[in-house]
Amino acid sequence: MKAKQTHWAKKTENGSYMAIRILLILYRFGGKWLIVVCLAPVLAYFFLKDCSARNASMQFLQRVHQFKGVESPFKRKPGYWQSYQHFWQFALAALDKIDGWLGRIPQSSVTYGGSLSFENIAHSGKGALIIGSHLGNQEVCRALVRSKYPIRINILAHTQHTAAFNRILKESSSDVDLRLIEVTELTPAVSVMLSDCIERGELVVIVGDRISAQAPDRTVWASFLGNPAPFAIGPWVLASVLQCPVHLMFCLKQQDGYSLMFEPFSECISMPRKQRQLIITEHAQRYAKILERIACRYPLQWFNFYDFWQLPGAEQYKEHSGDNSSN
């Protein structure tokens, strides 16, 4: 019998507050290289101790390998070494978040890719909903964009630990300016507040690859790497409420810097009551396919360290949907 699946909000955020504080203290007194040296044994400890995260890492990497076949980014089936590299990239990404918000990533090391220029978004005069993910480093993306363009970015956060990250960064630099909005549900008051942000030409940012921390049953299933996976309905419901352009955002680490990618998704999402579920499913599947394509190119920058395909009721879904794929 499988162990009960732990929700990502309870698993992945538990030690973040203290970890960020320690990182910033080390950074202040010894710089980035001291942190890198200290990270190796600490990371090895967590890699050995956290078997569920380690297994989730290998599961994801092996799914990518199997799904891509001869085009796999791995020469052979990923194992423990590739999983440790996955952990290591996650740790380095945490350091880059600090660098990003403290202004220590030069714009010269950033390339703007994708089929949509952020400059067009910033100067359009229109507010927009930006849907990100835990693929790559969206915090670095927001920091770099914020340093170059005078546009207000409102970030919908799922846990109090994200707000703690903001407070800790502000202790280190008064120039840090995030607007984190703790949202447990899309109430009329929240809808009005976010609509006002859009009216003022601001951006609202939400992630689309994790199910709700408060209502994990409010999901839609979409094919991802050949198997059905649960995705949140929140981004699509929010888009229909805000009635504004929707864009996707990715920030991927390169050897010599970062690539910021913006993709147009929809000019406006409307949901007639009778077609609501169908429209949500269609948009979630489109998003999943784009996420899948980029995740296969940058598998070690996939920072969801839990069983992405598992949810209470998943087996019943597969039975009812007739999905027997094993890709």
Rank of each mutant, 00 (worst) to 15 (best):
A94I: 03
P41H: 06
H65P: 09
R54K: 15
L102D: 09
L24D: 03
K75R: 13
H134M: 09
H65D: 06
Y84D: 05
K97N: 01
G100I: 03
G113K: 14
Q89F: 04
S117R: 10
S108E: 13
L34S: 04
S117K: 10
G113T: 12
F46I: 02
I98S: 00
V64N: 09
R76K: 15
K68C: 14
E71N: 15
I105V: 06
G127K: 13
Q89D: 09
F29T: 00
Q82I: 01
G125K: 10
W81T: 11
R104C: 03
I130N: 06
K75N: 11
Y27E: 05
K68M: 14
K75F: 06
V37I: 15
A94K: 01
R104Q: 15
R63Q: 14
M58N: 13
K68E: 15
K32M: 01
T111I: 14
L24S: 02
G136C: 06
G125Y: 05
L48S: 11
K49I: 05
F74H: 08
V64G: 14
Q107R: 03
Y80I: 12
A53D: 04
F47L: 07
E71F: 07
N120F: 02
G136H: 10
A122G: 08
Q62V: 13
G132F: 07
A53C: 09
W101G: 06
Y112S: 04
I131K: 08
R63F: 04
W88T: 00
G69A: 11
L39A: 15
W81R: 12
P41G: 05
S83E: 07
L102E: 10
V37P: 00
L92N: 13
G79D: 05
L129P: 08
A53Y: 04
W33N: 04
F47N: 14
I131Y: 05
F87P: 10
W88Q: 01
S83Y: 07
R54G: 10
L102M: 11
I130W: 06
K77S: 12
L92Q: 12
Q66A: 09
E119H: 05
I121A: 12
Y112H: 11
N137L: 04
F87D: 04
F87V: 07
V110P: 00
L43T: 11
V64E: 13
A53N: 08
W81D: 07
H86F: 12
G31T: 03
G127A: 11
K97C: 01
Q59N: 15
S83G: 14
S72E: 12
L43Y: 00
S83M: 07
S57T: 10
Y80D: 10
W81P: 01
G30Q: 02
A128V: 08
S115L: 10
K77Q: 13
K97M: 00
Q89Y: 06
L23E: 00
I130S: 06
G136S: 11
A44S: 14
D50S: 08
S124L: 09
S72K: 08
R76Q: 14
A56N: 11
